[in-house]
Design a protein around this nucleic acid. Structure first.
Lengths: 139, 139
DNA sequence: TTCTTATATAAGAATTATTCTCTTTTAAGA
DNA sequence: TCTTAAAAGAGAATAATTCTTATATAAGAA
């Protein structure tokens, strides 16, 4: 992703455009496996060795609050970040920490139809996410 | 759940039956909202004020390893435990920390059929879990 | 029943991810 | 260029979980 787009993304949320924010957003797009805060710190450490850990967490928080990122739940207690904010599901590898995004509007429709016909008692659905666990092949 | 069943559950996995293990398993069944380690410690603290925190975590780990419990992912970084080990989904309340189990074999079938006809490229599915977020009504 | 031993527990230190505090710096509008 | 609210830096604080080591105990063997 070009620098200019990163800046635009930050600007579009009325956040101050700082080099740290641009570097962190870039790292997330480059790393492309739903990185942890630590992954990000390591990645930007090459050009930016003095960034404060607290800053990274604060920037990530502001990005999540402003809809530039989503947090991704994982089995262990490390938070991971996803630059895809549109509705989608996740493929989890059961042999590694790989997570891939997954979209399937047809399936979404199927599930929505199912719940339209057969509501859950005493519960109003806001969102449905699939966690699909399995094994990635020949990659 | 009766004491005897708890003991049997522990025994069935060839784990030593200790008062701590029985108390912890009982707490999980009694608390019934996918408790955290802390919830459990608080609950059993009434009759068992001296149980060590580390023990609770070790017992939970052994139960998970032996299929008596499952871990449940949450947004924040606290692990929760689920005594239902059969395949099922979760309803997450977006206004509180309530989590409820949800079973719908018809839906499972629908989804399985969908993926039988339309496979995911380069991915072999092992398990599919739905995280259904929403609001619990009149409860 | 008593003995033996692998396993479990207690206690608290250590670790790890994350948040907080406070001071200094800076982006961006006036 | 000036002003100021917001951001960054540095590192302490917190909170959940794991680890370490000495002691205790469940459960099978004798």
């Amino acid at each position: 992703m070009k620098e200019i787009n990163l800046v635009e993304k930050v600007k579009s949320k009325k956040l101050k455009v700082t080099p740290q924010r641009v570097a962190i957003l870039e790292a997330i797009y480059m790393l492309d496996n739903h990185p942890t805060a630590e992954n990000i710190i390591q990645y930007i450490g090459k050009n930016y060795p003095n960034i404060a850990v607290g800053t990274v967490y604060k920037v990530l928080e502001s990005f999540v609050d402003n809809g530039l990122l989503n947090r991704v739940k994982t089995e262990n207690d490390v938070m991971r970040y996803d630059p895809m904010v549109e509705n989608h599901h996740h493929l989890y590898c059961c042999e590694s920490d790989k997570i891939e995004n997954f979209e399937d509007p047809e399936l979404d429709h199927l599930i929505a139809e199912h719940f339209r016909k057969k509501k859950i008692k005493n519960f109003k659905i806001k969102d449905i996410k699939l966690q699909i666990t399995g094994i990635f092949k020949n990659k």
